[in-house]
């Protein structure tokens, strides 16, 4: 059993929800990324989502687009991020999931990527532009290596699609809370509540909600409907614009997710 499954098992036993923060690797450099990861762990992050910068992040809003630009400017790529995680594994045992666009993995080679990632102590990957239909080989290779493949369910997903995504998924299911991009505004209407309960019923695994969760209040509302809450843009923005206040903000998010 890998770190992600262990984490959710522990949380379930403790009747707690997962706090899953996202940061961009290499924003503004890898030294800082290490510090940020240690801060997140210290503040009680259960799983850390580490973004891989890409030149054309089409699922991301302006905050993460700019973070990716900064990271690319610093020369940070997947080839540097994998050994970076390997280096910091002596300091942290928090589960780490890479969020990367598919072309980075495709160019690296699916098999080498999974092998090197597992070897470095990376626990899984989220690839927002890789739907299950295109992921057959990726899933097969990942299963063999006990590498989690986290897929996304969207508010537009039909019952049949939800089933397809659940079948492709391991570790946890990523529920995209809005039709939109990362960092957009959340709206917890009735349609959302109906849809997520349908998803929860269909999934035999933990469901974490992300996209648009920007305040402890948002997190507090989402936590009641899910097994975990993912916060990305708001944290990226805090670390970049107001690093002195980051720790307090992250603590508040953590407290709200219960």
């Amino acid at each position: 059993m890998n770190r992600i499954d262990n984490t959710f098992k522990r949380l379930k036993a403790e009747n707690k929800k997962a706090f899953i923060p996202y940061i961009m690797a290499g924003d503004p450099d890898l030294e800082k990324t290490k510090e940020h990861i240690m801060t997140l762990e210290e503040c009680g992050a259960d799983i850390i989502e580490l973004g891989v910068p890409f030149s054309d992040p089409l699922a991301d809003g302006p905050t993460i687009q700019r973070a990716a630009e900064r990271a690319l400017k610093a020369g940070v790529t997947l080839k540097k991020i994998i050994p970076f995680v390997k280096r910091i594994r002596s300091h942290t045992q928090a589960p780490i999931v890479l969020m990367t666009y598919y072309n980075s993995v495709f160019k690296y080679g699916e098999a080498s990527f999974i092998k090197d990632a597992v070897d470095a102590g990376i626990d899984g990957a989220i690839i927002p532009d890789l739907p299950p239909e295109e992921a057959e080989s990726f899933i097969e290779l990942s299963r063999a290596a006990d590498f989690s493949t986290v897929f996304l369910v969207a508010p537009t997903s039909t019952k049949e699609r939800i089933k397809k995504v659940v079948d492709a998924c391991s570790g946890f299911l990523y529920y995209v809370s809005i039709t939109g991009i990362t960092g957009a505004r959340l709206s917890l209407d009735e349609r959302f509540k109906r849809h997520i309960s349908l998803v929860k019923k269909s999934a035999d695994m933990p469901v974490a909600v992300g996209f648009g969760v920007s305040t402890p209040e948002d997190a507090g509302m989402i936590t009641r409907l899910a097994d975990g809450v993912i916060v990305g843009s708001a944290i990226v923005k805090k670390f970049y614009e107001h690093p002195a206040g980051a720790k307090e903000f992250i603590r508040k998010l953590r407290e709200a997710i219960r």
Binding site: L58, T158, V176
Partner: peptide, 10 residues
């Protein structure tokens, strides 16, 4: 192929 976020698949 069809390499887009899940939101657009439907």
């Amino acid at each position: 192929g069809r390499f887009v976020p899940e939101t657009l698949i439907p």
